[in-house]
């Protein structure tokens, strides 16, 4: 296990690379989902305002 973590002496370069990529993958999922949820919420808000107008 220690062998694996030390990456043959390249740990300080390998693990930050994987960590950054992991963060980018997760953040882009979160940003996309948040954008969609926000657009839906905004559409619902407008529709409810229109509903009251009638």
């Amino acid at each position: 296990m220690n062998d694996f973590l030390s990456m043959g002496g390249y740990a300080q370069y390998v693990w930050p690379s994987y960590a950054l990529t992991f963060v980018a993958v997760i953040v882009n999922i979160a940003l996309a989902r948040r954008a969609h949820a926000a657009a839906r919420a905004e559409a619902r808000r407008r529709l409810s305002i229109e509903g009251e107008d009638r």
Binding site: I29, L31, A32, R33, A35, H36, A39, R40, E42, A43
Partner: peptide
């Protein structure tokens, strides 16, 4: 997959 979710958000925003 990410593009499809973002595209849905973008379409919803534009077609409000």
């Amino acid at each position: 997959a990410v593009l499809l979710v973002r595209l849905r958000a973008e379409i919803l925003r534009r077609e409000r």
